[in-house]
Simulated assay, not measured.
Amino acid sequence: LVFHYRAASNRYALTFPDAVRSCKENSGIIASPEQLQAAFEDGLDNCDAGWLSDRTVRYPIKTPRPGCYGDRNNLPGVRTYGERDTQETYDVYCYTKEPQGDVYYVSERNNLEGARNSCLRDGATLATVGQLYAAWRKGLDQCDPGWLADNSVRYPIRNPRKNCGGEEPGVRTLYQFPNRTGFPSPMKRFGAYCYKGNICKI
């Protein structure tokens, strides 16, 4: 599963080393061109340029539109900026596998610290972005924003419906600003998405 990741500070704020670290912190690795191509063929459409493992910057477009034509004009496909200087800044595309555990929603509304503690009391941790995406892929559908481990607030929608963030399935992100940047203040109150790993019994 490939997912797009943006830094909390701004759009296009990650150097290549930052991008690698961000994916790792969110239960993934930086995606390869082949993985992004497969995600595009599976329906991924995102007009945000992101780092890939070969130090190229690309983005997948199923429906060409103004501002998203890139090097392919009106044709659908994965756009590329080619190989870039590793200190340039973009977003990133990460790849994650199915987690060995469960992601679940806690409805108690808390600030970020309270949400983290509510998971800990249950023997869990706040889920990472990668864990939430993987759970969404497995069927998690919850129209309730919740805190995640990277201090973001998101929610997974498998069955789009009114007041749940649009007409397409996906993981929704709550941004602080209208230009889709910034995470909510850590003092705001939301539910939480917790992750509890499977315990192997010998």
Rank of each mutant, 00 (worst) to 15 (best):
12 Y>M: 10
120 L>V: 15
140 L>C: 02
176 Q>S: 12
73 N>T: 06
126 L>V: 03
137 R>P: 00
146 G>P: 03
104 Y>K: 06
155 Y>H: 11
41 E>K: 13
86 T>M: 09
151 N>S: 15
16 F>V: 01
165 G>W: 02
66 P>V: 05
78 V>F: 06
61 I>P: 00
100 Q>H: 13
107 S>V: 07
5 Y>S: 09
166 G>V: 07
145 P>M: 04
31 A>D: 04
188 K>T: 11
43 G>P: 05
89 T>A: 10
157 I>R: 12
121 R>H: 11
193 Y>M: 10
106 V>Y: 01
201 K>V: 12
51 W>M: 06
134 A>W: 02
153 V>C: 06
129 V>C: 00
95 Y>M: 12
126 L>Y: 02
119 C>F: 07
101 G>I: 09
90 Y>S: 07
167 E>C: 02
109 R>P: 02
104 Y>P: 04
46 N>Q: 14
50 G>Q: 03
107 S>N: 10
20 V>A: 10
70 G>P: 01
35 Q>F: 06
164 C>E: 06
55 R>F: 03
69 Y>W: 14
173 T>F: 08
53 S>C: 06
58 R>P: 00
92 V>E: 07
185 S>C: 07
37 Q>P: 02
65 R>Q: 05
146 G>C: 07
62 K>C: 04
195 Y>E: 03
53 S>Y: 03
18 D>Y: 04
63 T>N: 13
176 Q>E: 15
2 V>K: 00
27 S>M: 00
192 A>P: 01
35 Q>R: 09
116 R>A: 14
26 N>M: 04
102 D>F: 08
22 S>M: 13
113 E>F: 12
14 L>H: 04
26 N>E: 11
114 G>W: 07
132 L>K: 07
131 Q>S: 03
55 R>V: 11
114 G>E: 06
144 D>G: 13
6 R>W: 00
11 R>Y: 09
119 C>W: 05
101 G>T: 07
80 T>H: 04
36 L>H: 04
108 E>D: 14
53 S>A: 15
138 K>R: 15
38 A>E: 14
57 V>H: 03
173 T>W: 10
8 A>F: 01
24 K>S: 14
178 P>L: 10
33 P>S: 08
55 R>Q: 15
167 E>R: 13
93 Y>S: 09
190 F>R: 01
85 D>K: 11
180 R>T: 12
85 D>R: 10
117 N>I: 14
172 R>H: 11
174 L>C: 04
120 L>K: 15
3 F>K: 00
159 N>Y: 11
92 V>H: 02
63 T>S: 13
188 K>G: 07
184 P>C: 08
83 E>F: 09
58 R>A: 13
181 T>Y: 05
31 A>M: 08
137 R>G: 06
48 D>A: 12
155 Y>N: 06
191 G>K: 04
